[in-house]
């Protein structure tokens, strides 16, 4: 069964359709890229899945269960993790504490009022496991706001993994990174994908990166899904070429 199904979703803001009758599905353990020119609707696509917006029309299913209309936290608790295009952390908390919030939430410890948070070995162990996975162990005690941009993006991914998601949504994981950082981020995503068996859907502007790791590519243009296929199919698709290089005038 498909892990994620988007059925005929339209998302309008006033007169503008940010998404127009989008239909697609993602099977378990795929690594799917969503690409398209600026303003094509990629971030809206994520926001509809994670409950920031309720679609104007259409439905979203996760593991066969309808999730559009649920609150953000309820959707996350179904088993979806999400990272953000613009870094979105708890800036004044340490790296470990940033990860710990999600771990506490996942272990259902957050209503414990009289337990010292620094004396919870299972929580610490899980925090260490995640920091290790995203290569941030040495930075554990640094305040998140002082990390380099690349490290902050890695922390984003770590935070998205705290609820042991079955589906991981990464919004522009390499945005704002230099070439070397981009390369490392790609390695990291592949690594997470291999080690945890999670299904990943990501948006990305760097097409080299998309073609080097995706198992499948979805192309959005002006809110419409114009192509859906393997890397090779997408590379050859004339509609996609046109979307990127412009119409033949």
């Amino acid at each position: 069964m498909d892990i994620l199904q988007i059925q005929n979703v339209t998302m309008s803001f006033g007169k503008m359709n940010a998404l127009h009758e989008v239909d697609c599905a993602v099977a378990p353990h795929e690594l799917v890229a969503v690409i398209g020119p600026n303003g094509a609707g990629k971030t809206t696509f994520f926001n509809v899945i994670t409950g920031k917006y309720k679609p104007t029309q259409g439905q979203v299913f996760f593991k066969g269960e309808r999730i559009d209309g649920l609150t953000r936290s309820a959707i996350i608790n179904k088993g979806i993790g999400r990272s953000f295009q613009v870094v979105n952390l708890f800036p004044d908390l340490t790296v470990a504490a940033n990860v710990r919030i999600g771990v506490l939430a996942h272990q259902k410890q957050t209503l414990r009022l009289f337990k010292n948070v620094n004396k919870m070995p299972e929580v610490d162990q899980e925090v260490r496991r995640i920091l290790n996975l995203v290569h941030l162990t040495p930075e554990a005690d640094l305040v998140a706001a002082t990390l380099s941009h690349g490290d902050q993006k890695c922390l984003e991914m770590g935070m998205a993994l705290t609820n042991h998601p079955e589906l991981l949504l990464l919004d522009e994981p390499t945005a704002g990174m230099g070439p070397e950082e981009t390369r490392q981020a790609i390695e990291l995503i592949k690594d997470i994908w291999n080690k945890t068996g999670v299904t990943i859907v990501f948006t990305e502007h760097d097409l080299d990166m998309v073609f080097s790791i995706s198992t499948r590519v979805l192309v959005l243009q002006s809110g419409r899904l114009i192509a859906d296929g393997s890397v090779e199919e997408i590379r050859r698709d004339p509609k996609v070429k046109e979307a990127y290089l412009g119409e033949e005038a």
């Binding site: 020119p37 600026n38 990127y244 290089l245 412009g246 119409e247 033949e248 005038a249």
Partner: peptide, 19 residues
């Protein structure tokens, strides 16, 4: 612009920018 076709008809000179 990222839309190359659109730009080429219009411009006198162009710079391509990447990263």
């Amino acid at each position: 612009e990222q839309n190359l076709r659109f730009v080429l008809d219009l411009i006198d000179y162009g710079y391509v920018i990447d990263q």
